[in-house]
């Protein structure tokens, strides 16, 4: 289990994360919900070891080292991390080697999953935004991560690609891959996750299980809390 204990993060003298406590169990999918500037992406950066918190403690699963934690982690951020002058295949091969796992079949498998197998030898620069996003997802899944961080993965995708990604996430959930999903579409995030965490101005203000009937009461409660805090 990954655990954040009392995490505080300052960026440009602004406290973007306030005393965050979060437990992320293996195989658990969490929806991070909140308005722009709530601290969702900053929280993902802390989990992705991109930003070091100013105070607090990160307890990695089974007391893993940071390097071992990175091997278990897959990341989809708004930036694709792709090299635009390389082909899709070359990009994935590079990232696969980076994680020390060389398996040509796995590359073909993820390319088929994101429906890019037929264009794998084309330069990424010739791809549309949606195709790049799909390739970025393939890149993140390539090393079979146990934990996945997804920051707005549906952004820039057409409806068909959204459906592909949605099915992939549901499959991963069944296989026991845990993920944290940040999405503008909170209803969709709710549908794809086990637990929802509400954030407001760098704080976690509510948590709840993503039950079938629970979405609207949860969002209603969220709006009430935000209103209370703003007034």
């Amino acid at each position: 289990m990954m655990e954040l204990q009392n995490i505080n993060l300052f960026m440009n003298d602004k406290n973007v994360l306030h005393s965050i406590n979060l437990q992320w169990r293996k195989g658990e999918s969490i929806a991070l919900i909140g308005a722009n500037g709530a601290g969702k992406s900053s929280l993902l950066k802390v989990l992705g070891t991109l930003v070091k918190p100013n105070s607090g403690k990160l307890k990695y699963p089974s007391d893993l080292s940071v390097k071992e934690w990175k091997k278990l982690l897959g990341i989809v951020f708004p930036e694709t991390f792709l090299y635009h002058s390389l082909t899709a295949y070359e990009n994935l091969r590079f990232y696969q080697k980076l994680y020390g796992k060389i398996n040509k079949d796995r590359i073909d498998e993820v390319l088929k999953q994101v429906k890019l197998f037929h264009v794998k030898q084309e330069i990424v620069d010739t791809y549309s935004k949606g195709m790049k996003q799909r390739l970025s997802i393939a890149r993140a899944l390539l090393h079979n991560p146990t934990y996945l961080l997804l920051d707005e993965p549906f952004d820039g995708l057409d409806s068909e690609s959204k459906e592909i990604l949605k099915n992939m996430l549901l499959q991963m959930r069944q296989k026991g891959t845990g993920y944290i999903l940040v999405s503008h579409d909170s209803e969709q995030a709710w549908e794809l996750c086990d637990r929802a965490v509400l954030m407001h101005e760098g704080r976690i203000i509510a948590e709840g299980k993503c039950t079938n009937q629970g979405y609207f009461p949860f969002i209603k409660r969220y709006r009430e809390i935000v209103k209370e805090k703003s007034s």
């Binding site: 070891t49 991109l50 990175k70 091997k71 930036e79 991390f81 792709l82 090299y83 635009h84």
Partner: peptide, 17 residues
């Protein structure tokens, strides 16, 4: 510069390299 343009350096920094 390719690394800076598409956040690819971030991709390296979050990897176990």
């Amino acid at each position: 510069s390719a690394e800076r343009e598409n956040g690819a350096l971030t991709g390296l920094l979050v990897s176990p390299i």
